[in-house]
Design a protein around this nucleic acid. Structure first.
Lengths: 245, 245
DNA sequence: GACATATAGTCCTATAGAGAACCAGATTGC
DNA sequence: GCAATCTGGTTCTCTATAGGACTATATGTC
């Protein structure tokens, strides 16, 4: 029954201060994705707050996507999932109409000095060593995405030792397991451009045909940029849908 | 002090039932955008609920974008604004770098039987009379968007009587004032395609150059489709940015 | 008239408590 | 062994109350 004092700016409401304390726990890795949070009653005892106040703090973090609540089971640190990525608006279905993860063929993997525009994104020094990778993503032998990926070598050195067969189509689990780098969120930018001769060859379309370009900067819980990625796919396979009001 | 009984499924929580009642008021036009809702204490007296319960109901509607709260002033029916539209990702700035609403030049306005794909979207009968319009949107004499617009004639007959000068660049206020049709929300779909010869001529780009296509279906509070619109702009002026997690 | 002050109305924060709904695992009964 | 039941723990709903914080308007003061 040791009551912990609540840190933070005294002028801020209690529920916000509690939320910040809990958020910090997650950002610093004290609590990891999948962990169960203390129960609402436990937290209210711990910090000497009314249950309603604790609940308000948790609600804020749930709205933020940091936590996940399950009636009767508990409140958990959310495992980041990228279901909301722009990629899901590519119509990638196999013959049976099912959604599938495209397989991956690595075309190139090497260490190079980071070009300045990459370095700026990854927040490393210009020319610092980085891992550069080209991948082709395929569905039933048909190419659907051409990808260019950059990683800071300082964090991802272990990635170089892996054989291609050990990598598979999904990279983030590999980053976590092999390099201890956990992706928490990402920023994505969508543009369209005419296919270069090289891109056209990879995607087997005409040079100059429109391609959708998605740039993604993936970040850790502490906001460190971890991976920069540029993916190109056929524009005629893409349509993004949203509701506004 | 007449206490109103709360309609709706008895198994649902009270705050949800109250939220649905209030939502219906807005959808049926009992309360219009800009109106102030009764205060939380007034509602709690009216329905015989604790203030906390009422607040929970209002919060749900605020999250939903239907209401808007102002500390110390009140809770209001939100005026739909389309700041979140995909259009804001076009880099349309004038010479001084300021964001401006592009002016509008109407190229064509006529009544035609609705083609089937339009009729389906507007939920009217195939071939039913509809208003068809082509517009060019310009910034400093430079064309930036080519638009094709369809309206169901049954609702928008009054729109035909207006002179072009009376219309201006923003249509939704005109729909409201002249035709009594209030747009509450919209669905937008983004694709990219090579410019047709016609589109290329309007936008003054090369035929086959990539253009961003945004289809929008605007709906009323009661979910009736009101306007279908297809807008095309230069792909090299567009980039959509979002965060995911 | 200009500016400070009071006041009423609003949403916002926080407390305290009770019971319902739900879930997982242990126990019981057969 | 298997199924039903119980039990403890969790989140969820709802009540009731009190005071703080903010806004707009009215009032007073100079």
């Amino acid at each position: 029954m040791s009551m912990t004092a609540l840190a933070g700016d005294e002028r801020l409401p209690l529920y916000q201060r509690l939320a910040e304390v809990l958020r910090r726990d997650v950002m610093e890795g004290v609590r990891r994705p999948g962990d169960r949070m203390p129960s609402e009653t436990a937290l209210s005892a711990e910090y000497g707050l009314a249950p309603g106040t604790v609940r308000q703090a948790l609600s804020a973090l749930v709205d933020d996507g940091l936590l996940e609540r399950f009636h009767g089971r508990g409140t958990f640190v959310r495992r980041p999932s990228f279901d909301r990525s722009l990629f899901r608006f590519f119509r990638f279905r196999d013959a049976s109409g099912e959604w599938r993860i495209p397989e991956s063929r690595i075309l190139k993997r090497s260490v190079e000095p980071a070009p300045s525009h990459i370095a700026r994104q990854l927040r490393i020094k210009d020319g610092e060593p980085a891992i550069s990778m080209s991948r082709l993503r395929l569905l039933n032998e048909a190419p659907v995405l051409a990808e260019e990926i950059w990683l800071p070598k300082a964090r991802f050195g272990a990635f170089l030792d892996l054989s291609e067969s050990a990598i598979g189509p999904l990279l983030y689990p590999v980053y976590d397991a092999q390099c201890g780098q956990l992706v928490a969120r990402a920023e994505e930018t969508l543009t369209a451009e005419p296919a270069s001769r090289e891109t056209a060859r990879l995607l087997r379309i005409d040079t100059g045909a429109p391609v959708i370009v998605i740039d993604r900067l993936a970040k850790g819980f502490d906001d460190t940029p971890l991976e920069w990625r540029r993916s190109k796919g056929r524009a005629d396979q893409f349509h993004y849908h949203t509701e506004i009001r």
